[in-house]
Structures are given as C-alpha cells and as structure tokens.
C-alpha cells in the first residue's frame, strides 16, 4: 500500500522513471567504504525521501554484506549481488546509479543515459580517478561526492539539472591515424 504510494509519488516527480532502483556498482574493484555507506540508515532514508523504492547493491568481492529488506512498512527494499553477467540489463532498469569513480563504470552509466552519483574512493593513493569525476561533474553530467557525504548529495541533488552526456567519437583519432599511415581518406 505504502509502496504503491511511493511509486506514484516518484512517477509524478520524475516523469520517465521506472519507479525503481538501483544503486551502486563497484565493478571489479574493492570499494567496501561505499557499500558500507550506502547501507547506512541516513543514505537509505534520503533515497526513500527522494522517491526511490528499491536499492540493488553490487558488492563485488567486498566483505561488507548489506542487510536485505523487503521494503514493507514504508522503507526502502534492499537487495544485493556479487557479480552479474547481465549488468547491462540491471543498468537499464535503474533510475539512479551510485558508483565508484572508475572510468568504465562512469561511461557505461552515462552512455546508458542514467543519472549518476560518483563517490570517489579516498583510500586510493594516486587518486587521479577523482579528476575525471570532477571534470564531468563540472560539466553537469553527474554528481561527484565522497562516501561520507553521500546522504547529503542525495538530499541536495536535482536530477533534472543534469545535462545528458553525448557519447564521444573515436573517428577523429582514426582519421589522424589513417592519414599518418598514408591510407586513403574514407
């Protein structure tokens, strides 16, 4: 009953949402800090307040096991998995993705046209990954945050302020390589 109301609310606030899920996707890298953070009551509360009804977490090789919940009595439904071969499908059914800053995850999500929050791993020594997330956040293609700030970011975010990412093009490089090697122009 309550869940139904939630979905209604969500549909009105985000028009083309599938009224569901889904979050987090630490790929093949270990990023327990993010799984732990997503599992906190603060983050779940903010997600629910924003109209999200389901949370699906990819924990990868992580050691933190989130607590599952069926989403009865006015709370977020939480589920998790380790790895999935159908991650592309999962991504398609999501209406929000929370991910680490790996370029693979970032571009897979952006190219799927999904709103994205990137949480930068502060434990990484040479943290060049933050560069990419911050640049794309500056261009308003995603929200960039740190794990401990995640609930604030969710509370403050305005998904409609995001600018869709236009997939890049490898043709200019290909043309330069072809020209350099003396191949005729296409």
């Amino acid at each position: 009953m309550r869940r139904q109301r939630r979905e209604d609310k969500e549909e009105s606030s985000y028009r083309d949402n599938t009224a569901k899920l889904r979050s987090l996707y630490p790929g093949t890298t270990l990023f327990d800090a993010l799984v732990k953070e997503v599992d906190t009551p603060e983050v779940k509360k903010e997600l629910y307040a924003k109209g999200f009804t389901h949370l699906l977490i990819q924990i990868g090789r992580g050691s933190h096991i989130p607590s599952k919940s069926t989403g009865e009595d006015g709370a977020l439904a939480v589920d998790y998995f380790t790895f999935s071969s159908s991650i592309a499908e999962t991504l398609r059914s999501a209406s929000l993705v929370i991910s680490h800053a790996g370029s693979g995850s970032i571009f897979e999500t952006l190219r799927a046209g999904k709103p994205l929050i990137v949480a930068v791993n502060e434990d990484l020594m040479d943290n060049h990954q933050a560069e990419l997330a911050e640049e794309l956040a500056e261009r308003k293609h995603l929200f960039c945050t740190r794990p401990h700030m995640l609930h604030r970011t969710i509370a403050d975010m305005k998904i409609e302020s995001l600018i869709p990412y236009l997939p890049g093009d490898a043709k200019p490089v290909a043309n330069l390589i072809n020209r350099f090697l003396g191949f005729p122009e296409d």
Binding site: E131, L132, E134, E135
Partner: peptide, 11 residues
C-alpha cells in the same frame, strides 16, 4: 600511436 586515457584530465 598513443591515446592518453580519458581518465586523465589534468595530468
């Protein structure tokens, strides 16, 4: 031919 990774923005 070297294409610097998209992850490298400033350095």
């Amino acid at each position: 031919f070297y294409v610097e990774s998209i992850a490298r923005v400033k350095k």
